[in-house]
Amino acid sequence: MKKLVFLALVLSLFIVDTSDARKKKKKYEVIDVTNGGSITGTIKAASKVDDPVMKIETKKPDEVEFCGTEFQSNMYIISPDLGVKNVVVALLKVKQGKAMPEKDYVINNLKCQFEPLVGLAFKGNNFVIKNSDALFHNTNLGIQLKGGKKRAVYNLALPNLNQVLKKKIKTKGVHSIKCDAHPWMRAYVYSSDSPYAALTDDSGKFEITDIPAGTYKVLIWHEGFGEVKQEITVEAGQATTLDHTFSK
């Protein structure tokens, strides 16, 4: 009997432990970051890549006129010294650090395109989805999973001009946005569960600041070049450099 009671106790401990572990996995803890480190760097392309022009095909006559027939995709915005714009650089599985930004993420349907093309959202805020066209749009937003699969997060109808919908940002990772009514429309948003994410500027540069010292996994993602993950160690009060060169 004693043995059994002991077994039960051990078991109950195990049960408490697993449910606790699950909770911990979810939660980001805000702490005072003093003497944090930073990561700066430049993301480059090995060589110039032509930015494709994309076609617009629609059977609705009013859309042919309003949306045009083709557009510059802006997939590869590369500076003269090969810096790549719109690359997401994000630390993964950060357990604690500075406060999350309080900022909603606006997805605008404008002239038959999404605006912006690539952006950063922070979990807990809202997606603010706007229709600035006098056309039916729908915003079909989903997480990109391994192997090119996609998981729907929201598919919302926006039939009217100036319609605005607000939806909680609940999921993390690279999300793609499509409009089923206009198959050429596309956008990407990286939703971060920590404040430590950045987007490269026109010259391919980025900066992430106030990071508690430690070793992190970092994601570098670009629509056309794809993604790489690597490890990086950040030291207190120091700037660590993270450069990467993508090749096609």
């Binding site: 729908n138 915003t139 079909n140 729907a152 929201y154 598919n155 919302l156 109808a157 926006l158 039939p159 009217n160 319609q163 919908l165 089923d180 009514a181």
Partner: peptide, 14 residues
């Protein structure tokens, strides 16, 4: 609710 995964969107908010 929409039919997630298809083009059929949700009109709950509209």
């Amino acid at each position: 609710t929409g039919l997630d995964g298809t083009g059929m969107p949700s009109y709950e908010d509209t």
